[in-house]
Amino acid sequence: MSALLRHRLTWPVLALVLLLLLNQLFRADFLSVRVQDGHLYGSLIDILRNGAPTILIALGMTLVIASRGIDLSVGAVAAIAGAVSCMYIYSSPEPASLQTAATGVAIAVVAGLALGAWNGFLVSVIGIQPIIATLVLMTAGRGLAQLVTDGQIISVSNDSYQAIGAGYFLGLPISILIAAAAFGITGLLTRRTALGTLIESVGINPVASRLSGLDARTITWTVYVFSGLCAAVAGLMISSNVTAADANNAGLYIEMDAILAVVIGGTSLAGGRYSLVGTLVGALIIQTLTTTVYTLGVPPEATLVFKALVVIIVCLLQSSRARTLLSRRRRPVTEPSRPKVAA
């Protein structure tokens, strides 16, 4: 029992379950999932579908944070990805064809990779502090997206493109499938190979890692490229869902949600050990929270206050101090487990 109480995922999972039950109290059909036209429908599916972009971005963010970095530019990258693909589709001679959609997606993915590589270059080669290096792209990125769309909201009508964010496959929304696949592949790629441990090493002690022969530079670079890729795919989902590119508002504040998801999931911003499952739970908590606000009918003025309180409560429950009180584990009086926090 006490082992269960100490497990770092216990409280986030509990919080998620409680939130869902709270919704169920207010809306009796909340937890039910029904089949309609061969598609799954229901609030749970909605949460997953709306949360897919956040989950994806949080996935990339987890690895960046594990390497002792942070990526503030993901929202801007998502906006750019949406902008370039929609712009391509919009201006192509065959705006409705599958091939056009595929090319648009490919362009967006390449853009995401390139922007990620840019961040990685600034951090790992030039040695700029991650928060500032990515702040540059966060600031300039939305401007770039507007430049692409010339400040307009670009609407496209292409069924294939729309499928990414709003389509169904085997009864499930495609965006959920994409997020799940990304999640699974990342899990395999980092835990079946040595990549995960090496990222953690670099995050915990970069100097010692370099002296042990790790190519810390390449590893750091890789995680930013990956984060850029995740952000681009998330950006495609967002713009495809509304069949338009909105350079100003697409993915606004998504970086904060993603970071929040990572931390609620138990990964320290000081770098080092990470948990992908934790991030998933964290992202779901955040998405459920948004849904809860509507279900409960919280007045719009108080939405942020409500969100703040839930975040604090989840973090309090999860904090090692609170867990100590609960499980009466003895601990050193001083010596914090990770003395330094590098954002």
Binding site: L269, S320, R321, A322
Partner: peptide, 9 residues
């Protein structure tokens, strides 16, 4: 007191 990361708080 609760040792929560400053970023989150």
């Amino acid at each position: 007191v609760f040792e929560i990361q400053p970023f989150i708080v």
